[in-house]
Design a protein around this nucleic acid. Structure first.
Length: 926
RNA sequence: GCGAGGGUAGCCAAGCCAGGUCAAAGGCGCUAGGUUGAGGGCCUAGUCUCGUAGGAGUUCUUGGGUUCGAAUCCCAUCCCUCGCACCA
């Protein structure tokens, strides 16, 4: 007998699987599943493992069910991150190098070549393919491509032509992070600091000062009515500049920023901050107010001047108070304008005093500010005299009104500072023109997507709400970039198509990927793709034969049946792809279903490559074996749930596989004659087959394993316990082994192949027929009898444990026939509460009196406790309990090591005998 | 803040949609016993409280409600996780 050795099984299987999963159109029904292709910028960890193993299990399952299965894979290499990585490696960034050298185990000579971004993705794409193969993924690798292949770019260009013609691509302006030294937009990877900072939209409230404007930047324009003063920093140098031909007074930093945001700016003169103090300014909505000094005003924050609303802003309140305590500006009073539940007249004052804050520098000030802003935004209402509207409504209305009537402008600025480019310069916000958008805001387009969503099957069902909401919420998407790898944007070749936008219909490309490779990319005009995907004929198509073959593949495979992807992609990729599909493809080629994954944890903490909290998939496979990794990942949680990788649990998974293997090897050649217990085993097996099948059809890998592994194992344990001492089991066990191996082989294909060779001799289990539950083998009577026996054995055990005497004999006393009548009447009755009354109306029961009522009550309790699948048959037909126990007498005596007697309760004089109920005989241990 | 999901025994986790099969599957950990004995062994039993007869009592975040009956349905509450975009 071959010892359990996963490494050996893996080697054997890989040899036999060479190219067997390559899949071509055939006369069988197809099943096409795709999973989000990886961005290969680093090594695979066990979290990735799950993402690709789930579809593989499904692919293997449907293949065994006789479908023509397509499971392809490609690599997404477009985008910016890898460009940043290569730059960091080139300049010797320690952190990056450590990650790649130590965690991802890239040899030094390879690492040296990583200064070229394409080399990085090519290296890891090869790694991915190698590790995926080692995990046993049944992928058709002929169809592999990467997203910078020239043929793929042609395909993307074709797609965009259609989007453009459908009016979904528009040009606009967009604020971006921008470095004025590099003269380039700044991506995440180019930042030294401030990667959390977001661009927010400030309203510039324009105060008049002589012939000039003093713009103050605010997020709360509705508070204009409560302005008591402005704040300027006396230590800062301001400038007077002509902005779009009109004089503005702003900080020097602000002047430069404004020039990046669609304003012409000419600086005319410098003004010391101290010269502004005590000057008066006016605004039509709040009248005349003074400018007061404040150190906290940051010249790098928007315009460098802010308006002060001491009633509602803690910073303003406390700054004003400080000045007043020195005896200045005592005539200024906070002007409240917002009523908010939970606060009195002047919320800022109240909050500051309640918290006992003494100084502007108090670290709690930010929290406090946040708290008041939130409360006012969510629950606040303007006073009646200012319109009485809720703050969240008034904010936008006031801003719009001030822009229209009072010269206000919008200014973009970061919500956090500093934001520093890796060149060391401060990053600013620039409004970029020539920015292209996908018009996801288009209501009609949204509507088409919604219609399609309705027809799609979504797993798990709960995510439907999230999809619906995402469609409603999507705004225009900036779809072109200036840095990174990717396909050139057709209408502006200085820009690239953004990586999420080039990954929306590539599932269609898989169907032709292995054939289009043979074509010259220069021949791949839009007309060619129109023919392949849409069947549109045009003259002079090149290499018509090849095109026809591709058209045939596409028609056969498309649409895909299921797409698998991570949960966090719902709000972009998974939804985008529906948008693009509905535009380009006809109804019968639109996606059919999606499965959304949960995320991976490592020992309870979120897996993250950047934090080093990952376990590499390759290491896992080496240490525990591919089948172990697969079975653990599939069995520890359902695909859409989060799973937690813990080594000690993985170890026990390996033991389970070993136990399965050893059991099959032990019992497969048993040759005994079948008994009743064999019929029981095979009967039970049918429901395990049915339930496993149903679970996998519903993507419940965990449920399926529970059923296919533990369900059958538990039965087998009971079976072997029930066998007479001298028996190894019957030849039925061979059937069971064959079924069992096939049920588990999608999960543990390597062990599966090895066992299948032992069992069947030839052929691959990967293509063996999936077991089908056969009703002819289902025997409810025998299952019920065994259930009765098993329950009785459990009862005997629990009594024996409790009384702790050494028993000399066991008597099983069976309930009389009239109790079966009672049982059946109660079980059948609609209302089990009134059933007792009904029963007592019968004369035969009346004469038993109290005894009958008690029995009825006990039966009611029992019926509630028994599973419905037991109660149902019992109510129709009593079990011949005597036969069950007499057949099992030898077994019982062997189990308990004492003589076992079977009696009728009615003829017994033992006081316990009266407690006998149907399906629950009285047990007397003496 | 907005949107989606979730809180079950020492831990992980099933059950909840279709209320009585629920003191609540399975696993891990722990405890005891067995295994004539190496190897991240294997097997059996126990693991809320009480109980010398298969039982009873109190549990499923918290507080209410509906019901003969609630882990499951309704309302409220507290806490947690994820997404909120130009980033794959």
């Amino acid at each position: 007998m071959v010892e359990f050795d996963l490494a050996k099984f893996e080697e054997e299987a890989h040899e036999r699987w060479n190219h067997v999963f390559d899949s071509n159109p055939s006369d069988r029904e197809k099943f096409y599943l795709t999973v989000a292709y990886p961005y290969p910028s680093g090594a695979m960890h066990v979290g990735h493992g799950r993402t690709y193993i789930v579809p593989d299990v499904l692919a293997r399952f449907w293949r065994m069910r006789g479908k023509q299965v397509l499971f392809p894979m490609a690599f997404h290499v477009t985008g910016a991150p890898v460009v940043g990585i290569s730059k960091r490696i080139a300049r010797g960034d320690e952190k990056t190098i450590r990650l790649y050298r130590d965690l991802y185990r890239v040899p030094q000579n390879v690492l040296d070549s990583f200064t070229d971004p394409l080399t990085i993705v090519r290296h890891f794409a090869a790694e991915y393919q190698r590790v995926m193969t080692s995990c046993g993924l049944s992928i058709d690798w002929r169809r592999r491509f990467i997203t910078v292949d020239p043929t793929y770019s042609k395909f993307i260009e074709w797609q965009w032509k259609h989007l453009y013609e459908a009016d979904h691509v528009i040009k606009g302006a967009h604020p971006v992070r921008y470095c004025t030294v590099d003269e380039n937009p700044v991506g995440d990877h180019d930042l030294l600091e401030g990667d959390k900072a977001e661009v927010v939209k400030f309203t510039l409230v324009m105060f008049h000062h002589g012939d000039a404007f003093i713009p103050t930047a605010t997020l709360r324009p509705e508070t204009i009515h409560g302005v008591t003063n402005l704040w300027a920093n006396p230590c800062v140098t301001y400038v007077k500049a002509l902005v779009d031909g009109k004089a503005w007074i702003v900080s020097r930093d602000a002047a430069e920023k404004l020039s990046l945001q669609d304003h012409t700016v000419e600086i005319r003169e410098e003004i010391k901050g101290s010269d502004l103090i005590d000057k008066k300014v006016t605004h039509p909505l709040c009248g005349e107010v003074p400018i007061l000094p404040a150190d906290f005003v940051d010249p790098d924050m928007a315009s460098g001047v802010v308006m002060s609303v001491p009633a509602h802003a803690p910073f303003d309140y406390i700054a004003l108070r400080d000045l007043q305590e020195q005896g200045n500006y005592c005539q200024i009073r906070p002007i409240p304008l917002i009523k908010v539940e939970g606060y009195g007249e002047i919320p800022a004052k109240e909050a500051v005093e309640k918290a006992g804050i003494k100084s502007q520098m108090d670290s709690r000030m930010d929290c406090l500010t946040q708290e008041i802003y939130s409360a006012e935004f969510s629950k606040g209402k303007l006073f009646e005299k200012y319109g009485g509207k809720p703050v969240r409504v008034a904010r936008d209305e006031v801003a719009a009104m001030m822009i229209e009537k009072y010269d206000s402008k919008v200014m973009y600025e970061f919500d956090l500072r500093p934001v520093i480019c890796r060149c060391g310069n401060k990053v600013k916000v620039k409004i970029l023109h020539d920015q292209w958008f996908l018009k996801y805001s288009d209501q009609e387009w949204k509507q088409q997507v919604k219609v399609q969503l309705k027809d799609m099957s979504l797993v798990p069902a709960e995510v439907r709400a999230e999809f619906d909401r995402t469609v409603d919420w999507l705004k225009d998407w900036a779809c072109t970039r200036r840095v990174g790898l990717g396909t050139r944007f057709p209408w502006d070749t200085t820009q690239l198509i953004e990586p999420l936008s080039d990954s929306t219909i590539y599932m269609a490309y898989y169907t032709i990927a292995h054939r289009i490779r043979e074509m010259d990319s220069r021949h791949l005009t839009p007309e060619v793709f129109d023919y392949i995907f849409l069947g549109k004929k045009s003259p002079d198509l090149p290499e018509k034969k090849k095109l026809d073959a591709m058209r045939e593949e596409f028609l056969y495979w498309y649409p895909y049946n299921f797409r698998f992807s991570a949960k966090d992609l719902i709000s972009n990729h998974l939804t985008f792809q529906i948008f693009h599909h509905v535009t380009i493809f006809p109804k019968d080629k639109l996606p059919l279903g999606m499965v959304v994954f949960g995320m991976g944890l490592l020992n309870g903490a979120k897996m993250s490559s950047s934090k080093g909290n990952v376990f590499l998939l390759e290491e896992a496979v080496e240490e525990f074996g591919a089948d172990t990794v697969r079975m653990f990942l599939m069995g520890s949680a359902e695909p859409w749930q989060d799973f937690d990788w813990r080594n000690e649990l993985v170890i026990s998974t390996k033991k389970q596989i070993e136990r399965f293997y050893n059991t099959v090897m032990e019992i497969k050649d048993a040759g005994g004659e079948p008994h009743d217990i064999d019929r029981w085993l095979i009967s039970r097996l049918q429901s395990h087959i049915a339930r496993t099948t149903e679970a996998i059809e519903n993507f419940q890998t965990r449920q399926a394993l529970q059923e296919a592994y533990f369900g059958i194992e538990t039965d087998l344990k009971w079976y072997r316990r029930r066998l007479p001492g001298n028996s190894d089991g019957s030849r039925e066990l061979h059937t069971l082994c064959s079924v069992w191996t096939r049920l588990l082989s999608p999960f543990i294909p390597f062990t599966g192949e090895h066992l299948w060779k032992e069992l069947a001799g030839e052929g691959l289990v990967s293509f063996a027929p999936w077991p089908v539950a056969d009703d002819r083998y289902v025997n409810p009577k025998i299952e019920l009898a065994e259930e009765l026996l098993c329950r009785t054995v459990e009862d005997i055990e629990s009594i024996r444990k409790l009384i702790q005497i050494t028993p000399k004999s066991i008597t099983i006393s069976l309930a009389p026939e009239w109790k079966w009548e009672v049982f059946s009447l109660i079980a059948k009755s609609e209302d089990r509460n009134t059933a007792i009354k009904e029963i007592m109306k019968h004369d035969s029961m009346k004469k038993r009196g109290r005894e009958a009522t008690d029995a009825a009550k006990q039966c009611t309790t029992l019926i509630h406790r028994l599973p419905p699948q037991v109660v149902g048959p019992l109510s129709r037909e009593p079990v011949n309990e005597r036969a069950v126990f007499e057949n099992a007498q030898a077994f019982l005596e062997q189990e308990f090591g004492v003589p076992v007697h079977i009696t009728d309760a009615e003829s017994s004089c033992h006081m316990k005998a009266g407690t006998a109920l149907p399906f629950k005989p009285a047990i007397i241990i003496e």
